[in-house]
């Protein structure tokens, strides 16, 4: 029924994950770092959905897992942006390189 191989989805997810990792390391804007994390989570979701469709078509546990990941991602984004906002009020910047009150 499905002519696209499973590996195509897995490779796509791997590419997306690596783009997310690169963005995580290199972004200087804290909002962009959060967006990169969302990319990584989406890559994971693609993996789960592909496995769910190709290997687990009857029980679809991967879809359940994905719903949980989406839920947590939304909670994490809300908390992350609240923290960012409170930090912005204190420091008036979102540049990651200037968050150096604490030594790394």
């Amino acid at each position: 029924m499905n002519e696209i191989p499973l590996q195509a989805y897995l490779c796509l997810a791997a590419l997306l994950f690596c783009i997310g990792v690169w963005g995580l390391i290199n972004s200087r804007n804290a909002v962009r770092v959060l967006m990169s994390i969302e990319l990584m989570l989406n890559a994971v979701n693609l993996n789960l959905m592909a496995f769910s469709s190709y290997l687990d078509g009857a029980e679809v546990r991967g879809q359940v897992f994905t719903v949980f990941v989406i839920t947590v991602a939304a909670a994490e984004a809300a908390v992350g942006l609240a923290i960012l906002l409170s930090l912005y009020r204190n420091r008036n910047t979102v540049d990651m390189e200037q968050f150096n009150l604490l030594r790394w």
């Binding site: 770092v33 993996n47 908390v79």
Partner: peptide
Amino acid sequence: SEASLKFLLVGSAAAAVFLYGAS
């Protein structure tokens, strides 16, 4: 706030990596 943001970014990245392994 800064500690919290650093914690969140590192922690979420760790969670994403964990999820990739779990998938």
